[in-house]
Design a binder for these strands. Structure first.
Lengths: 212, 212, 212, 212
DNA sequence: GATGAATGAGATTTCATTCAT
DNA sequence: AATGAATGAAATCTCATTCAT
């Protein structure tokens, strides 16, 4: 088995265990046994438990970002882009729940030691959104200075929004992912002001956003 | 020192250490030393490390919720309420960053074992928002069935939004809290549709920040 | 409550807990709570856990010995004496199983540290038997030198015999104590040689021991 | 060092320490140091302190039982068999006092938690005796129903007898083991009825001790 | 005389990590 | 290249025991 292939497999299994047990409760013993590899091998590949964990996080991040970037690529209206991005993320969660769970474990008691370095996914998503929002804003005539200053925090807030709804969805898995994306459009695109006024957002075929 | 007082002090110090180190890396030894109490005392009061942690979470939750509830109490317009709620939360974060950090540690690798029981803060905030949103929606003539179904997930998303922006703010502490609240109003109340169209939200007269 | 009375009560409760949990697993906390006394009181009365334990053992010993001595007192034939002694012991076990269980806990893993000082019961019973056997032997014309040398080890063996059968009885509590005493007479008085030859011992009314 | 060999060594040393200190007072630290092995090795082999202890008990049991079964094997008269069995047991005690002491610690304050599972030796010996006694009794024409009912408790009593005399012997180690076996024959085979009548048991010709 | 509150010391157990083979 | 065997270090938790009141 080629090294890259083997590494990929290790990261997937390890990621699953980290997601299920949490960083500390996941033992190198258990991981090695699940991969069917000796512990020294794990160390040869990743150097330490921390190294393995970070590699698993990066691997998972890369996969979400691939899906997400593919979804928002091309010449699309901002609204359409947001809609497709939301759909892509919830599709990813549905299909690779474990990978998402490493990135956003929900629930406290993390081991903060290397939280910074493990935030790669958050940053990648926020960066993508920041770029998109900034471009669009400028296209739409928003003051460039304002756009520069405001898009990054807004993008971070938006990632938090997705994470928050994803957490709720985990407890209501019977609902389809499209409904989650639709909710986010209503909340994030329309805003509560419109929602509470009864103005809802319509999915693509007849897409027409904005306030009434 | 009366028992209640001592307990409060323990919870504050322990909360700070849990927030700084994470659940696993925080050792009972370190916590006891920081409180200047013997370890057995900790066990006498809280039974176990888990018990101590959960008590600290509850204590922090109770404090945010007090502030938040006070801020949104009274006969206020929905918009005003949201605005004041946001302000209250960011004020809390500014003053009690550690308490917030225990509740929303940001960053992966949690110890999943008792994540459920530690979600009290999220649930409390989401429940408050759910109630407010539902009431307002119905007042505004939204179909009650829709309101019933949609407010809870939207509320969870909103909590995530706050958490997301708070995370960003932690890395940009030079900005005033009012600016964060203003951002959230623009994002969550107006929606991206309006924002990208250049339509911004104005804070109510008797307050200060924002841009016209 | 007079001190002696209170002390007696403490020893009974403590003895019960020691018997149920074993020396180490019985905590001073549990014992104090069961007696409904504060821990410092326990220390005031008995000095230490070890002191409490030894006092409980002595108390239990004193009680068996009272019963046993009463049973074998008076001018009785050796056989009759043995029979009455056995009956007394099994009666005691039936009525005060816990006291017996401190003295003969059956099963390994004792905490040998102060085993010597805790053997008081064994010694007391063995001493009583030694005296009786020696007297009888001499009366029956056994060489006094032999009697002197042999009675003590035989008495210890006999105590072991009683303990062994008591252990079996604990697992077959449905049988009456008289049957246990009868068995011991057959074994200890008649001997296996007679038993295997089919010669059994008859209880008192028609008592007639010896070999066929 | 091959695993089996190492395990045997561990069990012997651990057994010795358990016997000397008792289960609770023996610490894993001390045991590991005495074997000259790290504590984690102990856990790798036996899982827990309890596991180690039980393994040591089983090991000791297996060794007594080997000797005992070898001694009573073959076509022997009941009397001869008993005599040889006693000799074997006392020989074992003389040579492996520690192993015997783990099985029959004499002295109170056991940790009752797993007393049941630690009684293996008692049960093994009692089972062997039960079988032998039952066979012999039937051969000798004893009512089979009586034999079935009585042999087990008698066997347990007999094990207690051996234990009792062994306890005495520990305090009088200057006497030879043959004398102990002879005593037991006189007590258990002849019975006190005969003893007190001055009728003693004679060892079989080809052996030595005893008094005519 | 009596106790609530407190602690020093030590027990078992687990784990990331590394040699010797 | 790969691993079985081994360990140093540390974590949680418990308990007998004692002051200060």
């Amino acid at each position: 088995m080629p090294r890259a292939e083997r590494e990929r497999q290790m990261l997937e299994v390890a990621g699953g265990i980290f997601a299920k047990r949490g960083y500390n409760a996941a033992s190198m013993d258990e991981i090695a046994a699940a991969i069917d590899v000796s512990k020294p091998m794990l160390y040869a590949y990743f150097g330490s438990k921390e190294g393995l964990f970070l590699a698993a996080v990066e691997y998972a991040t890369a996969r979400v970002m691939e899906d997400l970037e593919a979804a928002v690529a091309g010449d699309l209206a901002p609204e359409e882009r947001l809609w497709r991005g939301f759909l892509a993320v919830f599709k990813f969660i549905e299909e690779s729940g474990e990978a998402w769970a490493i990135l956003y474990p929900r629930g406290p008691m993390s081991s903060v030691e290397f939280a910074d370095r493990a935030r790669s996914s958050n940053e990648a998503m926020a960066a993508l959104l920041t770029r998109l929002l900034a471009e669009t804003a400028v296209e739409q005539g928003v003051d460039p200075e304002v756009a520069r200053r405001e898009t990054e925090p807004i993008a971070e807030a938006l990632v938090g929004t997705v994470e928050g709804l994803a957490g709720w969805w985990l407890r209501h898995p019977e609902e389809p992912k499209e409904l989650q994306a639709l909710r986010l459009m209503n909340f994030a695109w329309m805003g509560l002001g419109n929602l509470l006024g009864g103005r809802l957002w319509q999915p693509p075929p007849s897409r027409e956003p904005g306030r009434g």
